[in-house]
């Protein structure tokens, strides 16, 4: 077991973890934060996306011990309020636009979108690499492609993100 400290949604947790434990399993199995989902456990679906030190990351591929000293924001903390009762504009837009069906990819989509909106720089579809491109639907689609949605809610996800970004 290894000792570590993690700041999760604003509160500091002192933990003793098996070095094999992923950040995802730590959140879900130890801290009761089951909002973050496990879809593949291999970085391939994005359901586990959290903000790790402010940047979106796949919690399934992060070893918890390697996150010692880090700050994590999960879907539960996205809105800022600890009780999740102050919805983030993305959360509101997702509900309004019906940007999910089963809801299982949704927390990952939301955290990914929040992280994505804070990112600067080009993407694979940006024509001129020297500019920070405007957030067109094409840019959103490329940047959100690390989050699979088997229900096929992409059209509404893109619309919701556009709306929240306004």
């Amino acid at each position: 077991m290894a000792e570590m400290t993690l700041r999760v949604n604003g509160s500091v947790r002192e933990l003793d973890v098996d070095p094999r434990t992923s950040l995802l399993d730590l959140l879900r199995e130890r801290l009761g934060l089951t909002g973050t989902k496990k879809g593949c456990d291999h970085g391939q679906c994005g359901a586990c996306t959290v903000l790790l030190d402010g940047r979106r990351a796949n919690a399934c591929l992060a070893l918890a011990v390697a996150c010692d000293g880090s700050e994590v924001t999960t879907v539960e903390g996205l809105g800022g309020a600890a009780d999740g009762d102050e919805p983030h504009p993305l959360q509101t837009a997702f509900v309004e636009r019906d940007a999910f069906q089963c809801g299982y990819c949704t927390p990952g989509q939301l955290c990914s979108a929040a992280g994505m909106l804070a990112e600067r720089g080009p993407s694979a579809v940006t024509a001129d690499l020297t500019d920070d491109p405007p957030l067109t639907p094409e840019e959103i689609r490329e940047r959100m492609s690390g989050n699979l949605c088997r229900c096929g809610a992409y059209v509404n996800i893109v619309a919701a993100i556009q709306e929240a970004a306004r």
Binding site: T74, P87, V95, Y104
Partner: peptide, 22 residues
Amino acid sequence: MNRVEGRDKVTGRARYAFEYPA
């Protein structure tokens, strides 16, 4: 109409099978 459980799904409160405490 918006999904009645929409709020639960976007806040992470909606529990799926593996997520019940025991």
